[in-house]
Structures are given as C-alpha cells and as structure tokens.
Design a binder for these strands. Structure first.
Lengths: 221, 221, 221, 221
DNA sequence: GATGAATGAGGATTCATTCAT
DNA sequence: TATGAATGAATCCTCATTCAT
C-alpha cells in the first residue's frame, strides 16, 4: 500500500527523531540553566543528552537554533496551559487580583521551566539585541500587549508597547529576585513584584485614558 | 638604599603602574561595552590597551579582577560626583522630583560610563550569582538602601533591602529599554521608568512627603 | 521461488537500481562541479539526489567509487559518441584540421559533462597519484595513444606514451584556461590550445600529412 | 637608552618569531607536499612544526595565510636566485636555448622547493579560482609576460597574457609528468616539455608579429 | 615592568560511514 | 531496498593564562 509507505514508516522515524529532539532540548534546558546560554557548549548539551555531537547537529544547525526552538516550545506550552491571554481579562476584575493571578502563573511557569529565565538572558549586549534569539522576548511582549489592550482600550499602540516592555522588564527583574531567594523571603519578593506592577499599571487603566500619544503620566491637577 | 626605593622611584613606578591600570581599565570598558563581559577576551583588552597580554596579567590576576576593579572605580566615581547618597534626600522634596533627579543622574552617569550596564549584566546565572563580580551590585543596593532609609524611617531593614533590590531591578530594566531606544522614544521610556518608580515607592514613604495628587498608599476603589 | 527472484522482479530491481545509480551519479557530478571532488561530501551528494546517505552506500562503497564509476561512464559515453578514436584518423587529413576537430569535440564533451574536468583534478598529490581514481586518466591516455599511433606509425611505444601524456596535459591546461574565460576571450584560448597542440605534434607526425603552410619539423631560420 | 629599547629587544623577539614562522612554513611545505593543500590541516602543520595549534595561529590567521606567505617567499626566492626575469632575455639567444635554460631553472627550483607544485594546485574549482591564494599564480604569469614581451615586442598585451597563461599551463602540465617519473624517463619528459614550448613559441617570436589583437595563429599564405 | 611567544584544552561544526528499523 | 538517526574523530580556530627573555 503506497499510502502505508508514506504514512506510517515516516511516523516511526519521525517518532525517534522527535524523541531525540525532545531529549536534546531537555538537555539544553538543563545546561542553559546551569551555565547560562552564552557559556553553554553544544558538546556539553550533547553529552548531557547522552548522544554524540554529530547527532545534535542532525537536528539543529547551531546553538542558536536550539535556543530558538526551546523558546518556541516554551511559548507554545504557555499558550496551551494558560490560553492566549495568560489570564482572563475580565474588565470587572480588580487590577490587583488580575496582576496577582498573572504573576502567580508566570512564576509557576518559571518554576516548572527554569530555562525560561536563562533564555530571556541571552547573549545580551545592550542596544544590540540578538535578532532571532529574541523571538521569545518579542512573543512575550506581544502577549503582554494583548493583556494591556483590554485594560487600556483607549491608549495608543505606542503607549501600550512601551508599557508592555516596562512591565515585562519589571517582571523579569522581580523574577530574578524571587529565584534568588527561598521560603518566606521569596514570598515577600513575590508580593513586592505584584505591588510594583499594580501600582505601575493602576493609573493607566480605568478612567483617564484619552492621553495623547507618548504621555502615560498621571494627569496633573 | 631602601629609602630610595620607597621615596622617589616607587612614586614613579606607582605612577606608571597607575597609568597602565587606568589604560587597561579603559580598554576593558571599551571591550566590555562592545562584546559584553562574557565574550570579552583578555587578549582583546590587552590589544585595545596597546599592551601585551603579559602586561595585563601583571596588574590583574584574571578577567574577573578587571571587572571588579572597574566596578569599584565606577562606584567611586559615582560617589565623587554625586555624593554618598546620589542625591539630596531632603524629606520635604516631593518624591516625584527626588526620583526624577536620581534617575536622571543615574542615566547621565550611564551615558558617560556605558560599561556600567555591561558590568551589571555579568555572566549571570540566575540564582547562582557570581560572588566577587557582584561587588558593584551589592554596593549599589547599599546606596539605594541609604536613600530609602531616610524616606522610610520606620521600615524594618529587611523591607528596605527588599525595596532597594526591587527598585534597582526596575531601574536596570528601565535602563535597558532606554538604551535600546533613541530620541523621543528614549525620553518616553525615561518618563515611564520614573513613573514606575514613583508609583512603586510612593505608598512606601512616610505620610509627610508631599504625595503627588490623588496617589495614596493603596489604590482606592 | 528463486526463479522468480531471477526473472522478473530482479529486472525490476535492477532497473530501479540502475535508476538510483544514475540519479546518484548525476547528483555527484553536480556536487563535484560545484565544490570540487575533495570538498564534496557524500551527504551532500545524497541530499542532491534526494535520497538518504544510507541509500548511497547501498550502491557505492565509498566516495572514491562514485568518482570511479562516474569516470567510467564518461569514458563510455565518449566512446559511444565519438567512437574508439575520438575522431576519424584519416592520414590524409591535415594535422591542423584533425587537431581542431578533436579539440572541438573534447571541449564540446566537456561542456556537456563539466564534471569531466573536476574528475581529472581529483585529490592530486603530485608524484603520488591516486590509484583507482585515475582510471579516467589512464583510459584517456590510451585513447590518445591510439590516435597518435596512426599518426606516428614508426615511433616506439615509449615515445607515443610520452607524447600522449604531454598532449593530454596540454589539453587539460588549455581546458582550464578555456573554462575560466567567456565569449571572445574563450574562443581565443581555444585557438591558442589548438595552435600549441598542432605545433607540438606537427614535427612528430610523418612527412606525408599535408603540413599546414610554412610549418616544417624544425623552425626554419 | 631608549633607542636600545626600541631597537634591540624587539629584534630579539622578532628573531624568535621569525624562526618560528620559518619553522612553521617549513612544516607547512612538508605537509602540503604530503597531503596536498586542501587536505592539509592546520593541526597537522603545527604538529609537524612541533608546536601547539595556538602557536600557529599567533603567526597566521588561517591556513590560506600560510599558503600565501609560503607562495610569497617562493617568489621572492625565485627572484633572488634567478633575477627578475628568470633568465637573460638576450634577443640574439636562440629560442631553443632560452627555453631550455628557463625550463631547467624552473625544474631545478621545483626540485629544491617541491611545495611549489602543491601550492600551484590549490583548492581548484574550475572557473572559480581562489582569489588570494593565486597570488603565486598571478605573479608567475606576470613573470612569464615579462619574458614574452621582450620576445614578442610588437604583440598586443592581450596576446601576451594569453600566451603567458598557455605557456605556464604547459609548463605545469609538463612538470607534473616530470615529477611523476625518474631517471631517463624523467629526462625524456623534460625534453618533451622543452620541445612543446619551443614549438609553441617559435612562430610567435621573430618576424610576423604585427598580428591584430586576438590572432596568434600562424599567418596563412 | 614589559614583551610576545607558547600553551593546550575546549569551542562549534563537519563528514564518511554504519546500523537499526 | 530505503531510511535517517547515530557515530566520533577530525576540522579550524579561540582564549585565559604562563613563562622565558
């Protein structure tokens, strides 16, 4: 059966390949977490995955591609787990609660996928951000923008982008602190991050949103 | 004669050594800015400084030490330029203005010493932060703590530390965005950062601080 | 049933095998032309042929064997197209015309099978010429010897071999120049090659060959 | 003495470096001869020179650079040994004798520097000749052009270039044959090469040189 | 102090070839 | 047969560091 020849056997082979890819990505995640993206070596990833360097290169053309794929899968998983918007954006939800939920989810996601943090801190040279590598960053900004758009319906796109970048930056900064602590102290940092975000966003949502582009300042009396 | 060795020639030698060190640090700053700390090579630093690799290692035991010394000098310069507290913490100054001044100064400092940013983004492995390397970070946190202590005299040390870390994190996040943009957009991000910091800190500082209109400790319903 | 295996299906199999081989050789020719023999990779050849590396190795034991087979087919095709002697060796034909015809045919053959040149420039290590690889070279020399034998009937075999080698070398050198140029310049090089060959061979061939005007065995004063 | 500091010590250091460079070039020559340029590995060269790979890269940025430098030195040595023109171009010298002398010198040079041949057979991909790598080839063509210009004073530049290329190609082809044989057979090939060159060049020198550009054919009656 | 040569392990990546399916 | 995953040694090259001069 020709149909058979084009359906099943490929699947088998792809299955093995897919398993290897998953294995390699898992190993890469582990190495990225341990050494950071920049210092991670493809040989180390292959070793961690228990395969030879050549095998790694059968599935990924270079280190960057591994990070990109890993980032893509993280985004995909985030989407699958929490949906497109990371949280229900019911306009009647109090901001404090919405932010709390989102931050909790984000943190939970991070704890289950610690490589997320490592990927967000790629080979940073300030000003000259890696292009492909930042698909993850770009995607996240887009997500946050979506969230904000429902909170600040009247705000111009440029303002939303700016706020999204800033909020994401704050989140990453808070996350770094959270990950660096444990127990009660960690919880305290979680709360601190939530406070910062709520207070930052609070004046932006709600009533006075007809601000001219570029102005997100609180209205003066 | 030992007196000879300790009087005039030593001065000469020290003077020459100081010049070399300054030369090397300047070169290191340049290279760190261009390639980032991790990717910077000591050979490249030596080349940039116009000396041989051996000479570099006569003054610094390793790459890390260069970054540490560079960080130390940055802190020192910050202190010399702006004083111990980075800004006058007159309790009657409105928070908005105080934050604005401090942020402006920080940004100005950054523009004059772009390596500051590169150093703050060392070989970061989340959770396992480099020890020596973070003298810069630690020092900065201490500075911010000092600032905050006068703004929140009643707060416990742990809270102050936490807020200092969070505020510094927010600043670094904002700085990254600011450096990544130019012109009007950059200005907008500067304002965004100031907003975020003011709103974050405002509820934390004591009552008698001349709160900006409409903002109280917690968002009112 | 063995009969079954040796009657119809075998034919099928052989047919399929032949197609695969042809497909692989075509791909190899393409890759050899693009990258040269040494730099050509078996994986690249398989990819170009649209098959897996494993398939390639089902038909050829190694890279060398591909080149050998390719060379063999080239020789075979040359024979089929132009006959055993590459050209009619009518003794009354003027040398100039004979050489002209042969060179034109060779060049034409080369343009239709550019891999010929690539194969003739295998992994040449002067003095230590690859053994198997040079079947092509050896065969060509034999052809040229055949040609020469009718032109120089009285010459000893060793002389014929020598002249054959030299003439073939000149042809390859000229071909390289021809391929490196285009348009008028290419034509000029073709003529140059013909001149060089005619003048080289003219004094070697017997008297009654209808020498081109003004050219005798040794340059007259 | 500052003059001393800028004169002698550098010389010392340079001396060691120069020795290493010579050593590396010698090793490279050996490896190129053994394996050919393409297959030669930098590690093998370093090993042959008895140094570490890193040392090699302190003096040469890559394999190509080694070949280029080696070629340059060969040309230089050729010039030093035989003078700018490889041979006296006394117009009264019979062509046969002139060619004989030049070929003998070339061959002698080759036997003393066998790497010459290996370098002339760089990573040949027909039509797409390596750029820098061919400094050697280019230089040689220029030399031959110089020789020819005195022999064919009336010929246009383009014709001279063409003849130079062709003659050099013939020489390389002959050289390959010569190197592949020994004893009497080798001598016979030497003579064959001389014959081919003399006969090729003979009609070009002397009287009928007012040929239109592009025509180097023998004049028709 | 200063030099620059020297190191050698380690980096990413390739490739001819083999093997389980 | 055909596949494509797997290999692992070999490729070129880099880099923090040391050492003789």
């Amino acid at each position: 059966m020709p149909a058979n020849e084009e359906k099943d056997p490929p699947r088998r082979r792809q299955a093995r390949g897919e398993r290897r890819i998953a294995q390699l990505l898992e190993a890469a995640a582990s190495v990225f977490c341990t050494t950071g993206y920049t210092a991670a070596s493809t040989n180390a990833i292959a070793r961690e995955a228990g395969v030879s360097p050549g095998t790694l290169y059968q599935f990924f053309p270079n280190k960057e591609a591994i990070a990109v794929e890993l980032g893509g899968r993280l985004v995909h998983e985030m989407q699958e787990t929490y949906g497109e918007a990371l949280a229900p954006v019911d306009p009647t939800t109090p901001l404090e609660q919405a932010v709390g939920t989102i931050v909790d989810r984000f943190i939970d996601f991070n704890c289950r996928h610690p490589v997320f943090f490592a990927l967000m801190h790629g080979p940073d040279i300030p000003g000259r951000i890696a292009e492909q590598h930042d698909a993850l960053h770009t995607t996240l900004v887009a997500r946050v923008e979506n969230l904000l758009r429902s909170l600040m319906p009247a705000a111009p796109q440029s303002a939303i982008t700016r706020v999204a970048h800033m909020a994401l930056g704050m989140y990453m900064a808070g996350l770094e602190l959270i990950l660096a602590h444990e127990g009660t102290e960690r919880d305290a940092y979680v709360q601190e991050l939530k406070n910062a975000l709520v207070r930052y966003l609070d004046p932006l949502v709600g009533a006075g949103l007809g601000l001219p582009d570029g102005l997100t300042t609180a209205p003066s009396p």
